[in-house]
Amino acid sequence: MIQCERLTKLFRGVRPVDDVSFETRAGECVGLLGLNGAGKTTLLRMISAVLTPTSGQLSIAGADVTEEAHSVRRQIGYLPENPPVYGEMTVEGFLAFAAGLRRVPRGRVAERIARVGAQCQLEGVLHRRIEHLSFGYRKRVGIAQAIIHQPALVILDEPIAGLDPAQIVSIRELLLSLKGTHTVILSSHMLGEIGQLCDQLLVMHLGRVVACGAPTELFGSPEHTITVVATLGGRRERVVQALEQLDGVLQTEVSAGENNTVKAEVKIAADKRPELSRTLIEAGLDLFDLQQKRDELETLFLRLTGEPTGERS
């Protein structure tokens, strides 16, 4: 779907995107990961034909972004970090306007509004003015305008930034529903969220792609050692005993958890996770939760980008 080769953007002597190459397949969800200023937005703006690359090749579904920008724009839907919505319009009026701009046939506009309205859970606010909606709803309207013309490629810049936890959950579900029917490329610096949604990750740093691959390859490859936190019901000694029986455990730390649970932090090879859960259950322990230690993901990410892993000033 996207073919990007040695793409560079030069802007006032700075290279916000520098020699970036990657490829994506149709129907895939690709995540751009990077710190602020890594070049994610500039790259997305070039993919969406808003910015023209200084050098390199970029094509969307075979159409060159520089030479055939008009044709590329027919195939994309773009949501920038701040939803591009007109506050004085109603949601329905705005979606009809966006559909008209994207050449949706007049007779199909109502049907498309109903469909994206249902998909983005906007049915209850279709007749309300956008300026009266919460930021979460405005994001939904922004996503709805990006998919109203059924584009092959949906580009979302920081779709979960600025949302509260409840909104993040609902937007995550919405994004998951887009996978398969559209190719999705989204950017974020929230590693946990993007890792759950994407089939492929591109880690960017200072305008360059420093790592590329599936989330498990990058942050949980078999040779990687990870720390898993298990929340268990049962006696502490039994937990220690069960973990001692398991091969490949490098380090364990067992402590009392909340509500009479036991919390076990286990340093283990990433591919040993299924064995770990089996062992704990077979030992007669109640397994309430099993997840990779949160701050460890961030540390791995900082290691990939070459940033210091301590406190950042």
Partner: peptide, 14 residues
């Protein structure tokens, strides 16, 4: 200022 120009710039219009 409002960021809505992006909507027009990413639409298939001249």
């Amino acid at each position: 200022q409002r960021g809505t120009l992006t909507l027009l710039l990413t639409s298939p219009i001249k």
